[in-house]
Design a protein around this nucleic acid. Structure first.
Lengths: 185, 185, 185, 185
DNA sequence: CATGAATGAGGCTTCATTCAT
DNA sequence: TATGAATGAAGCCTCATTCAT
């Protein structure tokens, strides 16, 4: 790909993230192009559909999360790795709230479209979860999907209430606390 | 208001809830009218704006929640009242997911518009929370707004993943567990 | 249908015929609406697609032709009925050239879409042809479809060269002459 | 012109003929470039306008027809030369139907633009016609332009109905029959 | 000179809202 | 008052043409 094309591609992606995060996924595409400083024609050359633009963003994000999950699995003590990952997950998700708007936009469709990456993410989180169970920091009877859903829902709520990073982490802390083993008195 | 007018008003509200819940808040308003079995003109006579229709729905819901909160405060043991209310809250919210779509549609606008009722709800939940703290079933250091946000976020996530009532209650259980006091070993 | 709606429906159809005939079938639909004196929204209420507008026009035309064919079959001497019908056919077709633009726009698609009416027209022309054969004014070895194609092609050519009615009839006369039995010297 | 430039020029022309014939003259010009195996920039260097590309094709075709007309005039018996030429005309026209699409695209414009060649063609056909009249194989009262229009219209119709070469020749035969002198019984 | 990325006017269509019946 | 027809701004997208690499 030519240098200028690559630059535009990146500018568009970045602009889309910002605009979608700021105004929601229903903004006219023209605004994205304007923000990126390119014509709509250019935008459409790179992303032939509004949906394909979502897809690109979501894919990028999920890939980044996958990388984080891998790194945490590799580098951290199993007792704290899940914890750390969920916080990172929340952080990324809240920063770019549109990820979840887009993910949730059409419910089942989304699942089908990104199912590969979502499945991979689920697998990564499951690994972290099982190791945490072994380490004794997590209850053994919670489902991996439940964990993911809780974190995503938390981010959604935080996003809509305009919570800052600290506020979000406070919510995540509660969720994490809810995952811990019940200690007999 | 004449009897038939009242009947149309109710039919429209009910249809709107169903349609929004089924298809999302972006459906053309014509579908609501069709579902209600009235003409668009009639719909607009009762609700002069799409937004005013949201408003009416949300107001109804929040009022219903307020009533529940009051009843639970009055009738239940403080040790379990908050718990019961959060489950009821989740249930209502998940049944009619559009409440939160609508609530979250424009972020700050919502807050301004329904701030009165939201504040009242917050006050009720706060009452339940304080009594639960006294009863020793809830940590003393969580914010009432955080609790509300967690439950709402949970419903959102549950809604998008198509979870049934049981699935939702599972998620809520985790949140509630996270609110419990940390027991020293 | 309400009176005003019917009036608009007709105005739109009429405007579409004129505009398509004048400017070709590629004109923006806005021009049709403008010519009809209605907003585009109204146009789209009556014809939800540009194609459906073509369809309506074509259907109207073909129906009119069918009626003519029936009348000529009923009222005229078989020896001259086909002749008369082909001239009428050419006249209608040339007047509203867009019929054939639309008919020919997508080749096979058209056939599928209007196949019912086209088949009926073919059947009518076939009846006229067979009676003319019996009457001895037409060769027995020409295909009905060939006759139709010749007339349509003739109209197309006449249309593009801006021929007037007399010019068109001159062309049709040659075609008709070509259909007559070869007289042995 | 450099050898490679000439080669590109030819490749583009050939590709354009094929693509226009296959998909109609409304195809995006990019498809022509792709088919020709060159970039759009290159296409535009050779033909600065879509219309200029039509023009080049049409000119090529008409020139070829002129050459045929000359050859037939020179080499064939006047009694059959017109007949033969009209069949050749139809054949070429049907093979590359887009010639007439393009010719007819804007009616009067075409006439103006190619009037020189069209006039020359008309002159050639007129020569053939007059000699056929003298030979007694053609009526003396038909206009040369009528003959040309009939053949072109016939090709148009044949093209849209997907007729093969045999089908086309059948139609042309009828037209030719219609041009013959009326034999007194 | 070749390439293909960039441009943006313009096309089709939707839908919240107004207005005539 | 109920109805639904009318409206038109605004959205998504295409494609002929220009321009930087």
């Amino acid at each position: 790909m030519r240098a200028d094309a690559q630059r535009n591609h990146d500018k568009i992606l970045e602009a889309a993230e910002q605009v979608f995060a700021l105004e929601g996924v229903t903004v006219p595409i023209d605004l994205v192009a304007e923000r990126a400083g390119v014509g709509i024609g250019t935008l459409y050359r790179h992303f032939p559909t509004k949906e394909s633009l979502f897809e690109a963003i979501v894919t990028t994000r999920l890939s980044s999360l996958l990388a984080s999950a891998d790194a945490f699995t590799r580098d951290l003590d199993p007792a704290i790795a899940l914890d750390a990952f969920l916080r990172e997950f929340a952080k990324q998700a809240a920063e770019k709230q549109d990820l979840f708007e887009a993910l949730g936009q059409a419910g089942i469709d989304v699942k089908l479209k990104y199912s590969g990456l979502v499945d991979e993410l689920t697998a990564r989180v499951d690994t972290l979860r099982r190791r945490a169970v072994v380490a004794g920091t997590i209850r053994s009877d919670v489902d991996t999907n439940d964990i993911i859903n809780l974190v995503m829902g938390t981010c959604h709520a935080a996003g809509h209430t305009g919570a800052d990073d600290e506020g979000l982490q406070r919510l995540v802390s509660i969720v994490i606390a809810g995952l811990q083993p019940v200690t007999p008195r």
